[in-house]
Design a protein around this nucleic acid. Structure first.
Lengths: 136, 136
DNA sequence: GGGTTTGACTTGATTAATGAAAGGAGTTGA
DNA sequence: TCAACTCCTTTCATTAATCAAGTCAAACCC
């Protein structure tokens, strides 16, 4: 389904998704038009889900990143999930997982105070275990 | 440092980083040139770290995503870190964390067999706790 | 073998975006 | 009040993207 040229295209776009089709073509030994057609196919087939940017969260004022293992008290998760929707700026990903806990929540905070507030509010819907990210 | 226009620009680029500067300008009520200058500034200041794509990992053959909490046996982490470098296609992020364990490893695998192999090899350098991602 | 279809690429013409230069409006501070 | 600065717009030359043919090779069929 995907040949080596497709893989090269995905690698190049992963490194820089704003590259021109002409340049991309040069890197994978195609014309800009052919590269463009390949990319369109990758989009249509759903391999490329979208184009986005990497934002420096520290420069945006989010100094703390954390993983929070969630253990919901009741069997109804809805209160917790509804709560999450009210906390959008802090949430990166909410992963439903096997193993310890029901969810592994990846999130970011501007300060320990905000994190503390969040945990206080969270505690009304679920128990948790907190892991702060020191480095990636 | 960042005004509302900058925030709008970051939101638009997060949704679609291949938008033309002209279109981006229209969305934030600027000319293409002015939008382009803003974006250049965001790049120079390091707020925008890069442009990339979202790839559908399932369509790439990675059917399993997992979080693995790593507890290294010795105080020397180097053997574990070196091991990771040999397993690159499977690794998404290796987060050094506080709390349970030394690291929280985010990774992807094409099959349970490959995951099993990985865990066997991992076990020579560290203990672990496995969480499979069911949903995001 | 001859003919047709299909998929992937290139070429060439048209349309659109980009980048550079010049200039205007608003703000700041001496 | 004036100069310096920032941020934006306008204009124009350059460059890239797009669309429509056209080429080429492989696969298939009679």
């Amino acid at each position: 389904m995907l040949d080596n040229t497709d893989i090269s295209i995905l690698n190049e776009l992963t490194k820089n998704s704003r590259i021109t089709m002409k340049e991309l073509g040069e890197k994978v030994h195609l014309t800009g038009q052919a590269a463009s057609a390949r990319v369109a196919k990758l989009e249509d087939s759903g391999v490329i889900e979208g184009y986005t940017i990497k934002v420096n969260q520290v420069k945006m004022g989010y100094f703390i990143q954390a993983f929070i293992t969630i253990i919901t008290q009741s069997t109804y998760h809805q209160p917790y999930l509804s709560f999450l929707k009210t906390q959008e700026p802090y949430i990166i990903h909410n992963n439903k997982i096997s193993g310890d806990g029901c969810y592994l929540l990846e999130c970011k905070f501007p300060s320990n105070e905000k994190l503390d507030e969040f945990l206080e509010d969270l505690n009304e819907h679920a128990n948790y275990k907190l892991s702060i990210v020191i480095n990636k």
